[in-house]
Design a protein around this nucleic acid. Sequence first.
DNA 1: CGCAGTCACTTGCAATTTGCAAGTGACTGG
DNA 2: CCAGTCACTTGCAAATTGCAAGTGACTGCG
Lengths: 135, 135
Amino acid sequence: MFFYQFNDKYSLMTAEPRSGCPIANSLDLVGDRWTLVIVRDMLNGKKRYSEFLESPERITTNILADRLSKLERSGLTTKTLYQSRPKRYEYELTEMGDALLPIVQAMCRWANEYIPGTWVAPKTFMTRKPISTKR
Amino acid sequence: MFFYQFNDKYSLMTAEPRSGCPIANSLDLVGDRWTLVIVRDMLNGKKRYSEFLESPERITTNILADRLSKLERSGLTTKTLYQSRPKRYEYELTEMGDALLPIVQAMCRWANEYIPGTWVAPKTFMTRKPISTKR
DNA sequence: CGCAGTCACTTGCAATTTGCAAGTGACTGG
DNA sequence: CCAGTCACTTGCAAATTGCAAGTGACTGCG
């Protein structure tokens, strides 16, 4: 297991990075068919397990549970208790997770241009900036 | 099998799309740990099988062959004969593939900001525009 | 009080995909 | 003729995915 430090917090890297390449490293965290659809939902304000299940891609419960825990371990989301009996959690993007917005927006632009029939996201979404105050 | 038409060419969709969402559709084409590292290499001018194998992520030959054929079937790359005996091909990005540049650049920016130790791409790469004359 | 319903998961299992290694065929250069 | 390179393909074990069903902790209703 490998760890890296960022802003007083430690995030878990579950394996040694394949290289120092920023693309390869990004893909090790979000390079699969489901992670970014969950991130997309979170960027659109969804927070609960059941809300993610309602999305049109029909993610299955085991994959959702797996990705939510991986997202948390990578430092992209937080899990907070909002109700104690029965225990219920809300999943929200951290600054690091929210900063994926430009990648998601670029994918939307690309798909709208090259994959016929893809939905066009609202202008408010496409022009939004990440919460991060940096850069 | 499903097909879609774009600019007089047909690209093969190997399965029904999960939804009309541009993110989900993008991920169905490039949502895995290897495809975008090959695209990255092509954006950097690499064209041959052996060049892709030399990259530090050490892609294996079977995965490379599989991804090159999927990329071609999705319309992101072309395969052209540059030598006839023995037959040798060069793999190059189509306009659609080259248009992935903004996504790749956004991933670089994100990784450089949030994943310590990632390499910083040269400014020439980060400020480049896709060949597409559109938009 | 009992029981159906919801929510958030977990478990089991078959099918697909991945990673690793070795093998193949068509040459090329010495 | 023979080693070497290039571009793959094949075989196989291990990991991941997709699908379905099950579980535990409640809530609301009659």
